[in-house]
Design a protein around this nucleic acid. Structure first.
Lengths: 214, 214
DNA sequence: GGAGACAGTATTGTCGACAATCGGGGCGCC
DNA sequence: GGCGCCCCGATTGTCGACAATACTGTCTCC
């Protein structure tokens, strides 16, 4: 029963990422105080924090809205992730313990099962878990945090992409390559595999954008 | 005479980066309301914003302090920058107009002059200008913003590094290589040159850290 | 003499009220 | 009838006060 400030930030973030609050929606302070049972100060603090994360935009005297991420920006985000996550993959390949290497290959196994049974929700969850675990193993706190925020910003587009028919097997193969390189302790190969993976994601987004535009 | 919120965030950021407020200093809200002639709400908002930028830490019920960046974290920051700025260099090499290519080489010329006259302040300023211009030319908004924040976080360490004897000529050569690659429109070479540059910075930081540790 | 408990103080967390600003709707004027 | 002005509701920005919490020094008890 503690309607505190940190809590509100988390709740608002969850509602934005979960789709309860759609891109472009106005965020009226009083409505949110009602929804989250807290004071306006907490809501305002949450706005400032989430603006820094790129999830919310604020205009002076005109309030806050859920940030709209264009396809072009989603591509940029993915390119930035490619740069950062390849660094993470390299560090993970260097630092991973035997148990951790086994864990990553185990996740790949589960992903294969999810693809075989066409369970896209499960696959998406495993996908998230794989990347998260890689970040943890890398021990690269600064980069891991940046990637985490970037991932949130583009979450909406990632979601649509995952539903594309025929996408899962391609994605699976790329993840398997990353896991193999990390398991082998090959830094360069791990970085390269991650680059390949996320560039492929960016390419798909580009096609999507072109299809919309033309 | 408008003691507003955005203003306070900028002022506080400037004071932290400029060294007026040293790492580890406690940030007492009332003191800052006095210093910046504003209300506590504005100061609190600034804390939240700067915490997201990594310049300030906040503990519940215990207030805010200027964030202390360890050498280890500065190294991580530099590595992340290496990944992101090489992406920027590549895009800049692709997108730069003729005028922009000339502008970059002009900056290198000024840097040579600054090294020749041993003007380290001028050199540091040109260094900042070079990287900033590169970000603008790249047109990669997402990455540029990330780099900007990372650069601020490690600013203190960058500063000490610039004062190292014999460092400037090395740095100059690396910047010249970047500028040449961008001017030639060679994306891969530009990215590689930027990687080399920032890895060299990270290496110097590592030596510094080892020297401190014993 | 030292350790633990206690009160006092300083600082933060939260709330409510007031002033400032923006967007929209109605009115008058051309 | 269309355009511009002005007023009004809604929302944000800011301030002050109150309650809650953590740190300081002191005091007592062992």
């Amino acid at each position: 029963m503690a309607p505190t400030a940190e809590t509100v930030t988390d709740a608002l973030r969850r509602d934005i990422l979960g789709g309860t609050l759609a891109p472009g929606d106005r965020l009226v302070e009083l409505q949110l105080t009602d929804r989250y049972r807290c004071g306006r100060a907490a809501v305002r603090a949450a706005f400032v924090a989430l603006e820094a994360e790129g999830l919310v935009t604020r205009e002076a005297n005109r309030g806050a809205t859920v940030r709209r991420i264009s396809v072009a920006e989603a591509i940029e985000i993915t390119e930035a992730r490619a740069a950062l996550e390849s660094l993470i993959a390299a560090h993970a390949a260097r630092n991973a313990s035997d148990a951790e290497r086994a864990e990553l290959t185990a996740i790949i196994g589960q992903m294969e099962a999810a693809v075989a049974t066409d369970d896209s929700d499960e696959y998406a969850e495993l996908n998230r878990a794989f990347h998260r675990r890689l970040r943890e193993i890398s021990g690269h706190g600064v980069t891991a945090e940046l990637v985490d925020k970037l991932r949130n910003r583009a979450a909406h587009h990632q979601y649509r992409l995952a539903l594309m028919p025929g996408r899962a097997p391609v994605s699976l193969g790329q993840h398997a390559a990353i896991a193999a390189a990390v398991a082998a302790g090959d830094e360069d190969a791990a970085a390269a595999a991650m680059q390949t993976h996320l560039r492929s994601v960016a390419d798909v987004l580009r096609q999507w954008g072109d299809a919309l535009a033309g």
